[in-house]
Computed example of a mutant assay.
Amino acid sequence: MNAIETEDLRKSYGDLTALAGLTLAVSEGELFGLLGPNGAGKSTTIRILTGQLRPDSGSASVLGVDPVAEPVEVRERIGILPEQESPPSFMTPREYFDFVATVRDLDESVVAKRVKTWAERLSYREKLDTLNTDLSRGQQQKVMITGAFLHEPDLVFIDEPLVNLDPIVQESLKRFLESYRDDGNTVFLSTHDIDVAAELCDRVGIVSEGDLVTTRRPADLAEGERLLDVFLREVGHDEGVAAGESGR
């Protein structure tokens, strides 16, 4: 069964076409990566799938629910980690998690255990009672990651999750995402870090000019072929790169 499906999704902002008929499917229990140049439609896709934006046409399904018709139900069932979003500055991490628990109707004792686990996993336990505004950008990112997983969703959308994290915490999070997937959950990862996508993802989709141009399994790449090579070729930049290299 597919956790995510889209069919001919289209979205424009005035004269700018963000999505030009995007059709894709992500299986349950898959760690799927979405790659593409800036402006390719990745953020628009996530906003539609998470019920934050209406497409001009086309259809979508997330865990069997239409995110356009039932956006609240979709957001109740998923986790979302947006790129470059910060926790409320006037709260501490602990207060923010209490707020998330209230919104998601989570038991206080369960939340306390989960917060402790995440604070230890991401190495910020001593910052739980510090105002978010006084945290570093990396520590704020850790708070947002915890908030996205606090209710233990079956599906999570994450946009550049490793940005601002130190290498030790990056490794801890990557290993968690793999175990989360292995437990049957689904990850929809948007990133510009092709090496991370190649390491983590079961399958990647490459979007260009608002459409899906190919999907690949990193594990099935030919010997000596890099996911970066595939990406550059599919988005039409391989010739320019080759020319630049030959001129060095």
Rank of each mutant, 00 (worst) to 15 (best):
M1Q: 04
N2A: 10
A3N: 08
S12I: 09
G14V: 09
L16N: 14
L16G: 05
A20C: 13
A20Y: 03
T23F: 03
L24Y: 02
A25G: 09
V26L: 12
V26G: 06
S27L: 05
F32N: 13
G33D: 10
A40W: 02
A40C: 07
A40Q: 07
G41H: 14
T44A: 12
L49K: 13
T50D: 12
R54S: 09
D56T: 11
S59N: 10
A60P: 10
S61W: 00
V62G: 10
L63N: 04
P67I: 00
V68G: 06
V74S: 09
V74H: 07
V74N: 10
R75V: 02
I78T: 01
I78Q: 02
P82M: 07
P82H: 06
Q84N: 15
E85H: 13
S86I: 05
P87V: 05
P88W: 00
P88A: 00
P88T: 04
P88G: 04
S89W: 01
R94V: 10
Y96K: 10
F97S: 13
D98Y: 03
F99C: 15
V103Q: 14
V103N: 07
V103E: 08
R104P: 07
D107A: 14
D107T: 06
D107N: 15
S109I: 05
K113Y: 02
K113F: 06
R114A: 13
K116P: 01
A119G: 11
A119W: 00
L122M: 05
S123M: 02
Y124I: 13
E126Q: 09
E126T: 07
K127P: 02
K127I: 02
D129I: 04
L135W: 00
R137M: 12
Q139I: 00
Q140A: 01
M144A: 05
H151T: 00
H151E: 11
E152L: 06
P153L: 03
P153T: 00
D154Q: 14
F157Q: 08
I158T: 04
E160C: 04
V163P: 03
N164S: 15
D166C: 07
V169D: 01
Q170E: 12
E171A: 11
E171Q: 08
S172H: 06
S172C: 04
L173W: 04
L173Q: 11
K174N: 10
E178K: 12
Y180K: 04
Y180M: 09
D183M: 03
D183E: 15
T186V: 08
F188R: 06
D193A: 10
I194G: 06
I194V: 10
D195K: 09
D195H: 00
E199Y: 07
C201N: 10
R203F: 04
I206M: 01
V207D: 05
S208A: 12
S208V: 12
S208G: 03
V213Y: 02
V213H: 01
T214K: 11
D220R: 11
L221I: 11
L221F: 09
A222K: 14
E223L: 11
E223M: 13
E223D: 15
G224Q: 12
E225C: 06
E225D: 11
R226D: 14
R226L: 14
L227M: 08
D229A: 05
D229F: 03
V230F: 06
R233P: 05
V235D: 09
E239V: 14
E239Q: 15
G240I: 12
G240V: 14
V241R: 11
V241S: 03
A242N: 12
A242Q: 14
G244I: 12
S246E: 15
S246Q: 13
